[in-house]
């Protein structure tokens, strides 16, 4: 991991520029520019609010904010993970010609997505201003945690995507399933407290990192409560360990994948 830091420090100017450029190009390709990053979750929220709350008559009070928080967290996870999966193929020119470190390139889509989704978080904070306060700052470590989880998974997926180019298609289905299996439209307690479901299903459900993160985000943003820091650090530690293994895996494979680009 220290090697990764060295690579990043050596190429920091490339990193800053690439993040900057990725944000700029996404903005520059459309007329409404960065407004889309506000409009998109709001429209999605509107659809789900209408469908679940009004038509199906489910969901409790403040269901619109409840859905919005889940959507924003999931969207940053999904977009960042799709981005990192594709990162090697997309930047093959830079890797082949300039020999930019792959470990650094993998971080770029994550940083870009976190930047855009912080807009959404700010919207929720303003919308739900009565519970905002100094404790709201704890969303920052949660967002970083999302980034680290994605980074760890992305290190594996991006390499697999070179060997097996169908990974992108498979990921689309996995993420679609993940959307419904994460507590986005419903609270996690719906699954965890259910008497009908066997224990192992609940365990599997809990293994989804986004499950805990979304719940924690809601605690902070909607209820103004603090999440369990012990769980946070456990997750942090696990994701750092995954990243370390991922870096080994990347290094072990890097000379092979460069040849396959």
């Amino acid at each position: 991991m220290t090697k990764l830091f060295h690579e990043i420090i050596d190429n920091r100017s490339a990193l800053v520029t690439l993040v900057d450029v990725n944000i700029k190009t996404t903005v520059a390709t459309t007329r409404l520019g960065w407004l889309w990053w506000v409009i998109n979750p709001l429209i999605m929220m509107g659809i789900y609010y209408f469908f679940v709350h009004i038509i199906m008559d489910r969901g409790e009070e403040n269901y619109h904010l409840f859905v919005l928080t889940g959507l924003i967290a999931w969207q940053s996870f999904r977009a960042a993970l799709t981005g990192t999966t594709n990162v090697i193929l997309k930047n093959k020119q830079l890797i082949r010609q300039i020999a930019l470190p792959i470990g650094m390139l993998t971080a770029i889509p994550i940083l870009v997505q976190l930047f855009f989704n912080s807009f959404g978080i700010i919207i929720i904070l303003i919308w739900n201003y009565p519970v905002a306060g100094i404790h709201s700052l704890s969303v920052v470590p949660l967002l970083i945690l999302i980034g680290l989880v994605v980074y760890g998974l992305g290190l594996f997926l991006s390499v697999i995507n070179v060997y097996l180019r169908d990974t992108k298609q498979i990921m689309a289905y996995v993420l679609r399933a993940g959307f419904f299996l994460s507590p986005i439209l419903y609270p996690a307690s719906r699954v965890l407290d259910s008497a009908k479901l066997p224990e192992f299903v609940k365990t599997v459900f809990n293994l989804n990192p986004m499950c805990w993160i979304i719940t924690a985000l809601r605690m902070v943003l909607l209820d103004g409560r603090m999440f369990n820091w012990q769980n946070f650090f456990t997750m942090l530690l696990i994701s750092l360990m995954i990243i370390q293994v991922g870096l080994f895996w990347l290094r072990a494979n890097s000379s092979r994948i460069i040849k396959m680009l």
Binding site: S13, A14, L18, V21, K24, T25, Q93
Partner: peptide, 27 residues
Amino acid sequence: ALGIGFRPQLTGRENVMISGSILGMPR
């Protein structure tokens, strides 16, 4: 490598920045 990292949507000036920093020049 000519035009490495160029983005067609961005201006010449911005692309100079991209290409230069990818090639290892400090910003």
